[in-house]
Design a protein around this nucleic acid. Structure first.
Length: 198
DNA sequence: TAGGTGATCTTG
DNA sequence: AAGATCACCTAT
């Protein structure tokens, strides 16, 4: 589609600011001619150098985290709990392991396709609210790890720009193991949006 | 609220 | 080689 978000937007040095700025962008996938998209309404930031909640903390390169050290604009997709695929956007310049977890989208294109993939006829937060729900709805799985977000399968476009009053800041979900860093205000979501996970 | 599920990383 | 852990979801 037109006007893909440029890599320059992903390559800033402050992953928290980038995460917040991504709210309102549209996330697209196109697999086997099935086009789906949604508005990003919930995100979290992760920083490998300083953040105990990040897989790459403390700046540790492993086979899994290697992708996070790439220059911004590629996907980091991993499996948790043996069954859930979570989609992140790698940010920063090469060498800094930062990423933004996409936690919820508001469905726009291909709702029927998403419902089929999710095996539901609902269109509410059960469809795309939650990091593993949205990947299933969009058809994203670990085979898409390392995908280039300028490519033809997964990409973003510019969308609405929300004002400060429409954006809620909070702590991240499911990172209690990170001690003090679980308290960082690195989760952002759109106020009153019905697709936000919690 | 408890259980499912398997890759990933650490320990020995 | 074995064990613990896990950026979650679904059904009870």
């Amino acid at each position: 589609m037109n006007n893909k978000l440029p890599n320059s937007l992903f390559r800033g040095s402050n992953v928290v600011k980038i995460a917040r700025k991504l709210l309102g962008s549209h996330l697209f996938t196109n697999f086997n001619d099935e086009l789906t998209s949604g508005i990003i309404v919930e995100v979290e930031a992760y920083c490998g150098a300083t953040d105990k909640a990040c897989h790459a903390y403390p700046d540790k390169v492993t086979p899994r985290t290697k992708i996070m050290y790439e220059s911004g604009g590629v996907a980091y997709v991993y499996l948790v709990y043996g069954m859930h695929h979570l989609f992140n956007i790698v940010t920063n310049a090469g060498g800094s392991a930062d990423a933004v977890l996409i936690r919820a989208i508001e469905p726009i294109a291909g709702v029927a396709v998403m419902q089929k993939r999710r095996n539901t006829n609902q269109n509410n937060k059960l469809l795309t609210g939650g990091p593993a729900r949205l990947t299933q709805a969009l058809g994203i799985n670990v085979s898409h790890n390392k995908s280039d977000l300028q490519g033809e399968h997964i990409w973003l476009t510019e969308g609405k720009h929300y004002t400060d009053k429409e954006i809620i800041t909070s702590t991240r979900i499911g990172v209690e193991y990170a001690g003090d860093d679980a308290l960082l205000p690195w989760r952002f979501h759109i106020k009153d949006n019905k697709y936000v996970s919690k």
